[in-house]
């Protein structure tokens, strides 16, 4: 007898690209930590399902819509920001879909994949000196916007409450609904902190007992793109409240690399490095528990990182190398 698989749900109605932002699947991670008891469940939001390929679509859409509503972004203006990563792709994706042009400043050592994606989406790139990192990129975009304020809308994701609101109104309720209100622990990396702060605040409103773990690298330079070390940064995001997390978990870049390889091998999930760092931390939390429902964020997939050397390194570090 032929195997019968579940038929896919029928597609409903035509959608725009913007309708595809959010409502991402919640995946059950069942094979990455076989030693966990069945009472400890680990889930992860597949944020690469957003049209721009990352969790940043949510914040970009909300910051752009907020800018329009407040009259700061008007037809004919350009969206301008300093970003080397997914936020830039999200601005360029949403910007193209809404008819706004986008200017992004970034250090010249941003990966070639990113620059190609951004140019394919029509973004103008201002490349700055690599040694001076994001400092110079931020200064470059700020001086550009100051010179011509009527020409540019500067969302400033680190200080824009609409970044937090995006997750308060979308990611938080989605996780609550997808776990039937059973979530006990939320684990998410801190970059701008928008995902963590917005989702965390909403989840705490549903259930004040939900434990919140922020994830950060183990030092100011690291290989986990998009996240930052709050203890040493000279610019803590304005939207971040250091008293809000129950704990901060530091993840070594090498552990995130090992986990990225391991997730591909045992779960069939090719995820980005910050996503892998989140899973390292989520499993650390999971191993402390005898029961619980842990949810973390898979910020993006591996497609923008496949040229990195670590994929070719031996996987014999396995679980030990992942620090779990």
């Amino acid at each position: 007898m032929a195997v019968v698989l579940k038929e896919p749900s029928p597609l409903t109605r035509p959608q725009t690209l913007l309708d595809l932002i959010g409502n991402t699947p919640l995946l059950s991670l069942q094979r990455i930590a076989p030693d966990l008891p069945p009472e400890v469940e680990v889930y992860a939001k597949a944020e690469w399902a957003n049209p721009g390929g990352s969790v940043k679509d949510r914040a970009a859409l909300w910051m752009i819509r907020d800018g329009e509503q407040r009259g700061l972004l008007r037809p004919g203006m350009r969206i301008a920001d300093a970003t080397s990563g997914n936020t830039g792709i999200a601005y360029a994706t949403v910007g193209a879909a809404l008819g706004y042009q986008v200017t992004l400043a970034m250090p010249e050592n941003a990966t070639p994949e990113r620059k190609r994606i951004l140019r394919a989406l029509g973004a103008e790139l201002l490349l700055t000196d690599a040694q001076q990192g994001m400092d110079l990129a931020i200064q470059t975009i700020r001086s550009l916007v100051e010179r011509e304020p009527d020409r540019f809308f500067y969302p400033d994701q680190y200080n824009n409450p609409a970044n937090v609101a995006a997750h308060y109104h979308t990611t938080g309720p989605e996780i609550w609904s997808q776990t039937d209100g059973r979530i006990t622990h939320f684990v998410a990396a801190l970059g701008t902190s928008g995902t963590f702060m917005g989702t965390g605040h909403r989840l705490r409103e549903y259930n004040p007992a939900i434990h919140l773990s922020g994830v950060q690298p183990d030092g100011p330079i690291h290989g986990i793109e998009g996240i930052k070390h709050m203890a040493t940064t000279t610019m803590v995001p304005g939207i971040y409240d250091p008293h809000f997390p129950d704990e901060l978990i530091e993840v070594e870049t090498e552990a995130a690399f090992a986990m990225a390889r391991q997730l591909g091998l045992v779960e069939g999930l090719l995820v980005g490095i910050s996503a892998a760092a989140n899973v390292v931390a989520a499993l650390q939390v999971a191993h402390r528990l005898t029961e619980g429902v842990i949810v973390t964020i898979l910020c993006d997939d591996a497609s923008k990182y496949l040229s990195e050397r670590f994929w070719d390194e031996a996987c014999d570090d396995g679980m030990a190398g992942a620090g779990i």
Partner: peptide, 14 residues
């Protein structure tokens, strides 16, 4: 000699 973080965002102000 220059020491350069591999990722563009990997400095104190990203």
């Amino acid at each position: 000699i220059s020491i350069i973080p591999a990722i563009a965002g990997g400095n104190a102000k990203d």
